[in-house]
């Protein structure tokens, strides 16, 4: 049995080895970019069928951000929408025969979580200034500073492990069942894996929203003050 923690090197550019995961990710990025260009090239006031679907998606995303973060969605929608679409397509890319989902390897998940980590700092500093952002670590009191600092890292780590564990375990179980039982048996498991992939993409995005929302809006501290008073 091949270890899920190892990636195969496909070819290398100079001294840099390119793994299968990276190549699959590049293909996906190219396909998504092409699709985005093609669908948004001719936007009209009276929407065509494709445009209506896209508008519904963008509207749902904006509503979700407004509900979760309680701020205007415009600065955050591009990043969060891209994260959702990328993870969704990556999880469902196991439908194409021979393609391993890139999110089933821990490097891709680590890169995505690193983007969220940097985005939290970026949006937090932009909304409150450096001093204001650092002051959020001392909430509700300065005793919590070490815990808050540890939390910033552990929640990103759990973001990595959650996505990796879910997608990889699905791929792994399908592989095991296929080798034990035969050709058509793992199809229900694959259907379950599609559901898991969609839910995990949603959860990763919502958690990124919650983390960024906690850094930019005063919602969290206001809640805490309310709890203190009551």
């Amino acid at each position: 049995m091949e270890s899920p923690l190892v990636t195969n090197v496909l070819f290398s550019i100079g001294p840099v080895p390119i793994t299968e995961t990276v190549a699959a990710t590049w293909c996906m990025i190219a396909a998504l970019a092409l699709a985005a260009i093609l669908t948004s090239r001719a936007l009209k006031l009276a929407p065509s069928r494709t445009q209506a679907v896209l508008e519904a998606f963008v509207g749902a995303l904006d509503d979700q951000i407004r509900d979760t973060m309680r701020v205007a969605p415009a600065p955050y929608a591009p990043l969060l929408g891209t994260i959702f679409i990328f993870i969704f397509v990556a999880n469902w890319s196991s439908l194409i025969p021979g393609v391993d989902p890139p999110t089933a390897h821990i490097e891709t998940d680590a890169a995505l979580a690193l983007i969220v980590f940097l985005a939290v700092i970026h949006f937090g500093v932009r909304a409150r200034g450096i001093g204001g952002y650092l002051k959020t670590f001392a909430e509700p009191s300065f005793v919590m500073i070490p815990l808050n600092i540890i939390e910033t890292f552990t929640r990103i780590f759990s973001l990595i492990v959650r996505l990796f564990g879910n997608v990889m375990s699905g791929v792994f179980i399908i592989g095991i069942v296929l080798s034990l039982a035969g050709l058509l048996v793992p199809i229900p498991l694959m259907a379950l894996e599609l559901l898991t992939g969609a839910v995990q993409a949603y959860i990763f995005t919502v958690l990124a929203m919650v983390f960024i929302g906690g850094a930019v809006s005063d919602g969290r501290s206001a809640d805490r003050q309310k709890e203190k008073k009551s």
Partner: peptide, 27 residues
Amino acid sequence: RTLFVGLAMIETTAIYCLVIALLVLFA
């Protein structure tokens, strides 16, 4: 919506165990 996020949080502990098992087996 809250339930899904909460379930994902709870599930993480099981996933941690899975990752530890994989580390023990493969690394």
